[in-house]
Amino acid sequence: MRGKALQLNPNVIKRNERVDLIFKWVAILSTILAISVLAALLIDVLSDGAGRLSWKFLTSFPSRRPARAGILSAIVGTFVIMGLTAAVSIPVGVAAAIYLEEYARKNWFTRLVELNIANLASVPSIIYGLLGLGVFVRAMDLERSILSGALTLALLILPIIIISSREALKAVPFSIREASYSLGATRWQTTKNAVLPAAMPGIMTGTILALSRAIGETAPLITIGALTYIAFLPTSPISVDGTFPFIHLSFEWLKDPFTVLPIQIFNWVSRPQKAFLVNAAAAIIVLLAITLLLNAAAVYIRYRFRRTWK
């Protein structure tokens, strides 16, 4: 190298710039290609199924006759399962994140838990189905019920909630905690009154994204044996009658069998008749609308409450 002066050959510069430009466009086109697949998917589903969407489709039960079939039990099932999944997984997930971020000492156990959660986040969802089948359906004898389904999905999204909540807690600057401690607050008071409120938008964003993933999950629910032909709704949690205290709470619905939108879609896609495929497309539109709305809500919260700490 020594003695050899750096030469600025105009041809080399020009060639380098041309390669750069070509590469830039290849990269842009790859990105556009990926996004246009998304567009093709949306257009395909809309053109197949939009004509089938109607109030009657949303409020009818599944049927052997495609023209009379609807997704009422699937929609109700999806919301019930989601509500229960959220009720179980959010408190546990956020508590685990608080423990790891605010309480735990850095020892071998904490490291083990961290590695374990990272691995659980990438375990295929169908394995959670096998877990649910073995533990909830068989060992605990909960049958193929709403409770089994929700618990299985809760375990599935728990690692995602823990990881994203930890990120949110990590982003809260240490000075906030120190300010709280200096006022004599205990660790729990600090966490509850200072850290959690500051981390809330981040926690909510991650939680909503996790739930939107759970809504689309099919495989684990099929594995625990969720029935596909459900032409009834879960038992009502509240009943009113003439005996004291007149309004009765019931948890019978936890033991009811269920179906959800993705399972109904899978069921229709697997049938040869064209009319059922149209039903599947219409149900997909509803499922996508729910999923995209949740995603949009998550993105909105992320931007609306975005805060830069000084």
Binding site: T31, A34, L41, D48, G216, I265, F266, V269, I284
Partner: peptide
């Protein structure tokens, strides 16, 4: 703009991709 758009691809339920693969 583009990063969230790409991430939507990962948020689409897999059963929908199954439909797309089989029928499109």
């Amino acid at each position: 703009v583009v990063k969230p758009l790409l991430e939507i691809l990962a948020g689409v339920p897999t059963v929908v991709y199954g439909y797309f693969a089989l029928l499109f």
